[in-house]
Design a protein around this nucleic acid. Sequence first.
RNA 1: CGGGGUGUAGCGCAGUCUGGCUAGCGCAUCUGGUUUGGGACCAGAGGGUCGUAGGUUCGAAUCCUAUCACCCCGACCA
Length: 504
Amino acid sequence: MNKPTKTAIEPTRTQDYPEWYQQVIKGADLAENSPVRGCMVIKPWGYALWENMQRVLDKMFKDTGHQNAYFPLFIPMSFLEKEAQHVEGFAKECAVVTHHRLEPDPNGGLRPAGPLEEPLIVRPTSETIIGAMYAKWVQSYRDLPILINQWANVVRWEMRTRLFLRTAEFLWQEGHTVHATAEEAMEETRKMLEVYADFAENYMAVPVIKGEKTAGERFPGADVTLSIEAMMQDRKALQAGTSHFLGQNFSKAQEIKFQDQNGQMSYAWTTSWGVSTRLIGALIMTHSDDDGLILPPRLAPSHIVIQPIYRDDAQRSEVLTYCQSLRKELSTQMLGERAIEVSIDDRDMRGGEKKWYHVKRGVPLRVEVGPKDIAKDAVFVARRDTGEQVSMSRSEFTASVSKILMQMQQNLFDRATKLRADHTVKIDNLDDFRAYFTPKNAEQPEIHGGFAECHFASEADVAEILNELKVTIRCIPMDGDDQGGPCFVTGKPSGKRAIFAKAY
RNA sequence: CGGGGUGUAGCGCAGUCUGGCUAGCGCAUCUGGUUUGGGACCAGAGGGUCGUAGGUUCGAAUCCUAUCACCCCGACCA
């Protein structure tokens, strides 16, 4: 008795954005919560998406001279203690291993036994364990630079979690490099931010702002933190990737030093940079609509699903044969460097149900093929991004499929760019700022605000109002060409504008 | 760690205030049939230690006590 609903996902974005987000994930079967507090299970469709992201990023890292390696999950507690800022930043959210076996307890259960002499922490990030190894590997300037990346899981014991956006355990990559000079390390920091921005915009179709974090928002232990910031459809900011110039902080703490050309001992300069499964959250919240997930073709695990339509066995075999040949023909087409992925969904399932299954999963193109289509050698094509459905000849479709997918990729990017442009404003006084970030409905805040470009002279001056409105300084954009102006709170002169926004 | 809430079938819930036959409903699942260019219909079936442990009672999903788990709101964060 389940009546067809107007939208495949309920509630809609405007009704309840956070709940919509959860339902999109559920509808697309990307992931679900696990019995382990704060930890998610990434299901095959979600993991395939992550694998595509990994494949592209990994190539980008290799193309910029990096190699992959793997370092331990566990870090001796004393390692973390070495860098004071770093300890302070992460100590409160670490999982700590204190025992190395279990024994039966009197109640028939198990209890930890065999206390460790030194507790191990599960890595929240690997600067310290990797730094300890780098200290051994670096002796001479000839050993530099070291350019290593690792794909790993990390654990941060967050108080509140949300699928993909913030989970206790998440998957990521972390690059860790060592350089002889500050300039070279800073160049590496910038270079990797560019890689992330390139990936976000050209593969994820998510427009990002490259910028520098303020002191208050910096990575614990970094001298400079750069980030890419994206705007989600609820107009909140999401930090999608970070790249840190760590100066000599970690090399001094961990004795990463080398003899230079002149025989002098110097501390090395290090960087670290990472993106995580959070990118999937960014993807979802940038493109999806009230019918579910929308995937940018370049990262979609499957580009086209062919849905055969038939009534009886005779038609079935005729239609399936046609679909198989269509599939084969489409599979030879390329989308960029990747072959187009085509699947045939011939499950015994009602047509409408099957259609919505793929709509919710965000497959870019859905192609229906039935006897009537075959009779005129045509296919019925539905585009996920626009919802447009057209019948076209088979030859026309196969000839243009690659172009259509690239158009979709571009359309998603343009759409997201427009949303951001429509909700980015320059604000120069406190009243406007407060009005911009205050929802009309205090009980159930509607989607409001966006990015505010403002001048500020010092973080302390704006701390109070930011705290009150739950707004943060996202970054000081690198590409900004602003000429300076007065702080929106104090009127004191400031250089460049910063992006202010509510954030995930 | 504060404030609020929820634990009943795979999922979503009703029943609890006011204790009482065999604990219900929707979706999902399974079987049979009818359907089939679009989120089907009919008939039937399976599936529950009512979070856990005590207590009150002739009798507890329901009342009392304790406890655990999870969710939401805050403080903290990729």
